Computed example of a mutant assay.
Amino acid sequence: MKYEPRERLQAVAGVHADLQRREMTRAERLARWAELLDNTPDNRLSTLSETEYQPAWARDAMRSAGSPITVAFGDAVLRAEGLQDDTYGEAKRFFELTDWELHQLVCSCHSGATVRAEAAARCVREILESRPGLFAMLLNALLIVGPPRSHIA
């Protein structure tokens, strides 16, 4: 193999170092996640237990080996986009999900201790295709800030 300086290779190959890679949109990240889940549709994935009953700090730290979030974190493309780990809070941040949306996807109250990858992919697509309704927004507000406090003076 013949050694060539980088400048020569760039000129020959037409490589341009100044080209910036475009970041994936939320929709593209979610679509990729659904595709990854669809690659093994019968795979049984771990769920997270009772996410809706956890305080926000505990919920954000929740994780389970072999969960739908772990499938996303196992993808080099999503990690290159900025997915930092396989916790509930990181999935919420990275995929721009509400607590209600992520609860629907990973909580054990919907499918038990495990969920089929195909069902998780379908849930991701439903999230991708829908806009949250009033009920979902109210429930998400309750999950985030908790019940209203009394302000009696």
Results as ranks from 00 to 15, higher is better:
M1F: 10
Q10T: 03
A11T: 10
V12Y: 11
G14Q: 04
V15M: 13
V15S: 03
H16P: 03
R21C: 11
E23T: 14
E28V: 01
A31D: 07
A31Y: 07
W33L: 10
A34V: 00
D38C: 14
D38L: 00
D42S: 12
R44K: 14
S46Q: 12
T47Q: 03
L48S: 10
L48R: 03
L48N: 00
E50H: 15
T51Y: 02
D60S: 07
A61L: 14
R63K: 11
R63S: 13
S64Y: 04
S64T: 15
S64E: 14
A65Y: 09
A65T: 12
G66D: 00
G66R: 08
P68I: 10
I69G: 05
A72N: 05
D75N: 05
A76V: 05
V77H: 04
L78F: 00
D85I: 00
D86W: 01
T87E: 06
F95D: 03
E96P: 01
E96S: 13
L97F: 00
D99K: 07
W100R: 15
W100P: 04
H103M: 04
H103E: 15
Q104K: 11
S108V: 01
C109A: 13
H110K: 13
G112S: 08
A113W: 14
A117L: 08
V124L: 06
R125V: 01
E129H: 09
G133Q: 10
G133F: 09
A136F: 00
A136P: 03
L138P: 06
L138E: 06
L138T: 10
N140F: 05
L143D: 00
L143R: 07
L143P: 03
I144Q: 09
V145E: 12
P148C: 02
R149A: 15
